[in-house]
Amino acid sequence: MAQPLYALGLGCERGCKPQELLELARKVLEEAGIGAADLTGAYSIDLRRREPALAYVSQQLDVPVSYFSAAVLEEQTQRLLNPSERVFALTGCHGVAEAAALAAVGSDGVLVIGKTKTAHATAALAVKR
């Protein structure tokens, strides 16, 4: 039987401290009982492509980081546990962390951990079975 494939969705405000996002990512992995080696990668919105915190998490967890457009993330809205009108107003999609994780695992994937927040960041975890 194949090992499940996990995707870590991440969102953050501009200028988020890299350590804040890394600690949140590690918290979500710990809560799920998995390690970074179980991830296919980290995923976010393309608006944050140049955000140092995302690059830092990618480096520290030794996983690739990939980005989706707001339009692709918006396609996941019906599957989100925590859709947000505020996030939609800021980004053009109703969620970043949950939507990015779900987009990465595809239509047969599910959220394992919904949006988890700190002051400036969000993370979520999805799995493809």
Score class of each variant (00 low, 15 high):
Pro83Arg: 13
Leu90Gly: 10
Gly15Ile: 09
Gly92Val: 14
Pro64Gln: 14
Arg79Met: 07
Tyr56Ser: 06
Lys115Val: 09
Tyr56Ile: 05
Cys12Leu: 10
Val105Gly: 00
Met1Arg: 07
Ala100Lys: 01
Gly41Gln: 10
Cys16Pro: 05
Val72Leu: 07
Thr118Phe: 03
Gln60Gly: 05
Asp38Thr: 05
Ala53Lys: 01
Leu111Tyr: 06
Gly106Glu: 11
Gln19Leu: 10
Asn82Pro: 02
Pro64Arg: 15
Pro18Asp: 08
His94Leu: 04
Ser66Lys: 11
Ala104His: 03
Ala124Gln: 00
Leu29Thr: 11
His94Glu: 02
Val28Pro: 00
Ala37Tyr: 08
Asp46Pro: 03
Gln3Glu: 13
Glu75His: 06
Arg86Cys: 10
Phe88Ser: 05
Gly11Met: 07
Ala121Phe: 01
Gln19Thr: 14
Thr40Ser: 12
Lys27His: 06
Val112Arg: 13
Leu24Gln: 04
Lys17Met: 12
Leu10Ala: 02
Gly33Ile: 14
Gly35Trp: 13
Gly109Leu: 06
Leu61Thr: 02
Glu98Tyr: 10
Val110Lys: 14
Leu73Ile: 04
Ala121Glu: 01
Arg48Trp: 08
Tyr67Leu: 12
Lys27Phe: 15
Thr40Tyr: 04
Leu22Gln: 09
Glu13Lys: 13
Ala97Trp: 01
Leu73Tyr: 05
Leu111Pro: 00
Ser44His: 11
Leu21Cys: 03
Ala89Trp: 10
Val28Gln: 06
Val65Gly: 00
Lys128Ala: 12
Glu51Gly: 01
Gln59Pro: 00
Ile34Thr: 10
Lys128Gln: 12
Thr116Leu: 08
Gly33Phe: 15
Asp38Tyr: 07
Ala89Gly: 06
Gly109Ile: 02
Gly92Ala: 13
Ser44Asp: 09
Cys93Arg: 07
Ala97Val: 12
